[in-house]
Amino acid sequence: MSSAQEMLAISPGVLRTAVDSGLVTAEQAQGLRELEQARAQVREAEPHDDEKFRFISGFSDIFVTIGLGLFLGALGYFSGNAVGNAGMFAVIAAASWLLAEYFTRRQRMALPSIVLLLVYAGAVFFTVAEAFNPSLGFGLGLGNHGGLPIVIAGLVTAVATALHYRRFRVPVTIAAGVASLVASAVGVLFMIVPDFAEQAAKPLLLACGLAVFTLAMRFDLSDPQRQTRRTDIAFWLHMLAALLIVHPLISGLVGDGGSDVVSAWSILAIFVGLALVALVVDRRAILVSGLSYAGFAFGALVVKAGLSDSVVPLTMLVLGALVLLLSAGWHALRRAILSLLPGALAHRLPAHT
C-alpha cells in the first residue's frame, strides 16, 4: 500500500486525536480530509449530524472519578476545619489543578478532566467570594455588599479558567469561563439597581443565554464537519445557553401564580420550541439541558397540584413521548426542516448532509 493510500485509511477519529494531541494542526487535518475527498470523487453520505461527544474513554474514567470525589471531599473537610471556608476552597482549587496535571495532561481521561475542571472553577469562584466577604455564605448571597463579591469572583474565575484552558485544553473550560462572566453580569446588576435586580435578572439571563448560543454557533459554524475540539466546546456552550434561556422563561411559570394547566402546557410549548432549534442546529445538548430544567419545573408543579391534577403527569407523558419520537426520527425531521430553509443557510449549518 502506498503512503497516500495509508493516509486515506486514517479515520476521522484518529485525525481528531492527532489535532488534540498537537501532532498536526487543524489546518493540516483539514487538508488531509480535502485530499481524501478529491481522490474519492464521490464520498458516501455519512450521518454527520450525530453528536460525537467524548465523555468517557472506558470504565477507568468512572473509577477514577469516584476516587477524585472521595479524595477531594475528604480534603475539603479537613482543610475547612483547619483554615476556614476560603482556605478550604483554595486548597481544593490547587489540588484540582495538580490532579489535572496527571489525569488530564498525561492520561487524557475525559470524565475526570471534566470533573476536575468544574471543581477547579467552582473552587476558585468560592475562594474569592468567601475571601471578599465571609458572611456571604459560600459566596452565594447578594445582600451585604451588593453584587461586588460576585463580580470580582466571576472575573477572577474567568481568568483562572483561561489559564486552565491554556494548560490543559479541556473543552468544557470555555463554558465554565463564560458562566463565570454571566455571574459577574448578574453581580453588576445587583450593584447598579439592587431594588430592581430581582425583576431585571430574568431578562438579563435570557440575553446572556442568547449571547452564549451565538458564541456556540460560531464554534459550530467554524467546524461544520465536527472533527476538531471546537465541536466539543460548542457542545458545552449549547448546554449552558439552554439553561440560561430556559430558566427565565420557565421560572415565572412555577410559583408565580397562574393555573397548573397553563403552566404545564406553557413549559411544553417552550420545550417544543427548543426542539425545533435543536433540530435546525443539530444539537441534542440543547434538549438535554432544557429537559433537565423542565423536569425540576414539573416537579414543582406536581407538588403545587398536590398530585390531584392529572394535567401535570399527562404533560410529562407528552414530553417523554416527544423525546422518544425525536430520538427515533431525528435525521428525517431535520432533513424536512432544513428543506424549508434557504439553501445558503442550510448548507452553512453544522453537519449538513
Rank of each mutant, 00 (worst) to 15 (best):
S21V: 15
S21P: 00
G22D: 11
R39I: 14
F53A: 06
I56F: 14
F71M: 12
A74N: 05
Y77A: 15
A82S: 10
V83Y: 09
N85T: 14
A93W: 01
A95S: 13
L98C: 08
Q107T: 02
M109R: 15
V119W: 02
V124P: 05
F125T: 02
F132Y: 11
G141Y: 04
G143W: 04
H145E: 08
G146K: 07
L148Q: 08
A153G: 01
G154E: 00
L155G: 00
A158W: 08
A162H: 04
R166I: 02
A175I: 05
V178Q: 09
S184D: 00
D195C: 04
L204P: 06
G209E: 04
L215V: 14
R218C: 07
D220I: 03
W236T: 07
M239I: 15
I270P: 00
G273S: 03
V277W: 08
R283E: 07
V288H: 03
L291I: 04
Y293V: 11
A294Y: 08
V303M: 13
L314C: 06
M316K: 03
V318F: 11
S327K: 10
L333V: 02
L333W: 07
L333P: 01
R335K: 13
A336Q: 12
L340Q: 08
L345H: 04
R348P: 05
